[in-house]
Nucleic acid binder design. Structure first.
Lengths: 364, 364
DNA sequence: GTGAAAGCGCTAACAA
DNA sequence: TTGTTAGCGCTTTCAC
């Protein structure tokens, strides 16, 4: 590549000083038309591209918002960084899982950046949530959004002393970081209530992991609704990461062996619900005929599934937008305390709870 | 925000020079362990985050790959940059259209960046493909990927004199830019052949716009197969942008009024095919009973649709990966000529052509 | 193995 | 309205 022309080159060709060139780009209307004209033509002729590095260094701002995540897509396919591993046959992918949770949130972040005149810098962790990777992107942006459980809190705290950091979908924020979340508890309570009141179910088991704040809140919603209805709680252990399908299958087998199939499985995520529906189908158990299954998230996957999945839809795009919005606001006018927002969710009644398919909630 | 600590601060605290600090980060093993230790502890204690701007300025590389697109998602919803327009009710979105074509390609770019140790910088055009927006991101990256018809060619040419530029999904590359594409012609020929040979159809109309190289190639594939079978060509005008549904409806109405319904509609994109299927359904015409409809792209939307859409699957993630890969290779070792790659496509036989649903190509 | 010093290209006072 | 002059924080020779 040819050496990139600089302000000096442009200034020389236009017969002005570098400051004027810089000024012409930032405050075009404050420059005499003839001067501006000359500068612009010089820039055009030279193929001048301002260096963002130099700009950022001089101005102290980068104009970029960062989003750090975990390379979910690649990792799920066993792809390694720096390896030559090819993807499998893309045409045979399980399309049901797209877009992923993270994709939708990322889209929201991207939209808000676009709207507010920022660019988005996306980085994915290479190692096991390595700090080094994060530093690589944290040093390039004016604000940073991260997915929960991707980076240790102390690392985030350190970074947040320099630039605003927002955690996406962390319910309660005791870390002092900015955060956006959704009404996990309310949504799950409403869903559980539907099972109890509309379908008259009593033996309802909750499926979900311990130790994740958002999942715990979903459990609270379930528990609250059950207790309010005078029903006993019942929980199913969650699968170890990466073994969802196997685990669901063996859990279903245990239910059958013990003759203790619940009337409903209230799962903490769509992904889990889908895995259980697969396992139940494989065991010849009809959903929703013999057991109802519900999810949480509202991924497209639940829509494609037969029966379609009754779930709670999170406003994922809005989640991303809200996160980016907080960041950009903070960049413009750094606040004192942590900003947090909770977004509402929406119950999506479909087939897997025992309701009839409805045009409005079926393919749309 | 507190002032960010710099190499000087770290050097002072560690009792070394800034060069040593820099050296410690780039060549850790070439520094005496004690020194390295001291530098690392100072960096940690200070919460030091290297400035990418300064690094980029000094080294002449940014470590980022740019992807420039058109804010399709936001624009389709009527969202304006800098406006306060909120999104509509996200729960009521037409999920069928996700992920979009661009989402999948972007994922591929992101994956490859991750794999090769780059970060991804995403920018969307604010105005009508404004050069200013592009310059904003072109100046921040070591290589740039763009979607076709997003930016005027001469602008791209100018940028490509400084950094490698790859066009994603441009079939023939007469511009001298790097490019990746898929076998549009072959895929469409195969699909048309299926309609003719397996289903015995003869009156097959092609639906698609003029003036887009990839669509033209698809037309060539269709035309070649028809001519080879001794069948007459028939084309349907394409809809003006943003009026797909209306246009499809009125086209169908014309077919009906004239009593000239084709036996098949071979559409140049899935989106178009889906719009025609909606219009046909509204007109009470059975697909595939009375008319076959096919698409091109292989979006999830076609899978969710009933009947599921027979189409040609493009390896979109691979397309993105290939594009990013070319860029990163070029950054490492700038080549002389333009690098181009064509990826194979895959025929996805589903229901809308008249075939039976098959487990393997249905929900997966 | 480590330090000194010279930029990288731009912005932001401040002068003129 | 335009020019001068300092840096911004880091990498990179080149000495030591």
């Amino acid at each position: 590549m040819a050496k990139r022309p600089t302000v000096y080159d442009v200034a020389a060709r236009a017969g002005v000083s570098i400051a004027t060139v810089s000024f012409t780009f930032s405050q075009p209307h404050k420059v005499r038309p003839a001067t501006r004209e000359a500068v612009e033509e010089a820039a055009r002729a030279l193929g001048y591209l301002p260096s963002a590095s130099a700009r950022g260094l001089a101005s102290g701002k980068t104009g970029a918002i960062g989003l750090f995540s975990f390379a979910y897509y690649a990792r799920e396919r066993g792809l390694q960084p720096d390896s030559q591993t090819p993807f499998g046959d893309e045409a045979n992918e399980d399309f049901r899982m797209f877009p992923l949770y993270h994709d939708e949130v990322q889209r929201g972040v991207q939209v808000e950046c676009w709207r507010r005149g920022y660019v988005l810098m996306v980085g994915d962790a290479k190692g096991a949530a390595g700090e080094a990777d994060l530093a690589g992107i944290a040093g390039r942006v004016d604000g940073l959004a991260v997915f929960p459980n991707t980076v240790p809190d102390d690392v985030l705290m350190r970074i947040s002393r320099r630039i605003p950091v927002v955690e996406l979908s962390i319910p309660i924020n005791n870390t002092g970081l900015h955060g956006v979340s959704v009404d996990n508890e309310g949504g799950m309570a409403e869903l559980t209530g539907h099972l109890v009141e509309v379908h008259g179910l009593r033996d309802i088991a909750f499926v979900g992991p311990k130790g994740f704040p958002d999942k715990e809140h979903r459990f609270s919603g379930y528990a609250g609704a059950m207790v309010a209805a005078g029903l006993p709680l019942r929980t199913v252990d969650t699968a170890p990461i990466g073994h969802l399908a196997d685990f669901a299958a063996s859990t279903v087998a245990e239910f059958v062996a013990a003759g203790k199939l619940p009337q409903a499985l209230v799962c903490s995520t769509d992904e889990e619900a889908l895995a259980y529906m697969d396992a139940l189908a494989a065991a010849g158990i009809d959903v929703p005929g013999q057991i109802a299954v519900t999810g949480f998230d509202g991924l497209v996957a639940g829509l494609v599934n037969r029966p379609s999945l009754t779930t709670v839809r999170q406003p994922l795009v809005e989640l991303g937008r809200a996160g980016a919005s907080i960041l950009i606001d903070q960049v413009a006018k750094p606040g004192k305390g942590a900003v947090t927002r909770q977004l509402p969710v929406k119950l999506m009644i479909r087939e897997s709870c025992g309701c009839q398919a409805q045009p409005g909630n079926q393919v749309r």
